[in-house]
Simulated scan of single mutants.
Amino acid sequence: MQISDTLENFVTKWRAYHNDPLPSMPFDPQWPSLCFDANDPQAGEILNWQPTKQTPVSDMFIRLGEALDTKIHPDIAEYFSCYWSDHLNARAPAGDLVLLQVWNEEDLERLRANFIGHAMVKAKQKQPLSLFFACTEPDDGMLTVRNDDGSIWLEYPGKKPVKQIADNLCDFINQLSPR
Rank of each mutant, 00 (worst) to 15 (best):
P56L: 13
D69A: 12
S85V: 02
Y17Q: 11
N104P: 12
E106L: 03
L34A: 09
I62M: 08
Q54K: 15
L47H: 04
Y83D: 02
K71Q: 15
S33M: 01
N39W: 01
E105R: 07
L22Q: 05
L34G: 05
K13H: 12
E45L: 01
H87M: 04
P56N: 08
A67F: 10
M60P: 04
S24A: 05
A90K: 07
I72Q: 09
Q101G: 01
F27I: 00
P26I: 09
D37K: 15
E8R: 08
D20R: 07
R15G: 00
L68H: 13
L22F: 04
E78Y: 04
F61G: 00
M60C: 07
D75N: 10
V98E: 10
G95T: 08
I46T: 08
P41T: 07
R15E: 14
F36Y: 15
S4W: 01
D96Q: 11
S24F: 03
L7V: 07
E105T: 04
N48L: 11
N19M: 08
I46E: 12
V98N: 10
F27K: 07
W31D: 14
N48T: 13
K71M: 11
D75K: 03
G44E: 03
S4H: 14
D69G: 12
N104K: 07
P26L: 09
K13R: 15
I76R: 02
G65M: 09
A38R: 13
F10D: 15
A94S: 13
V102I: 15
S58K: 07
F80S: 05
T12P: 06
S24P: 01
A77C: 05
E109L: 06
D5M: 11
T55A: 15
A113C: 00
D37L: 14
P21V: 12
C35V: 15
L7H: 12
H18R: 14
F36S: 05
Q30M: 13
F27N: 05
S85T: 05
C82D: 04
E105M: 06
E66H: 11
D59K: 14
W84T: 07
C35K: 00
L68C: 10
H73D: 13
A67P: 07
R91W: 03
W31Y: 14
N104D: 05
D20K: 10
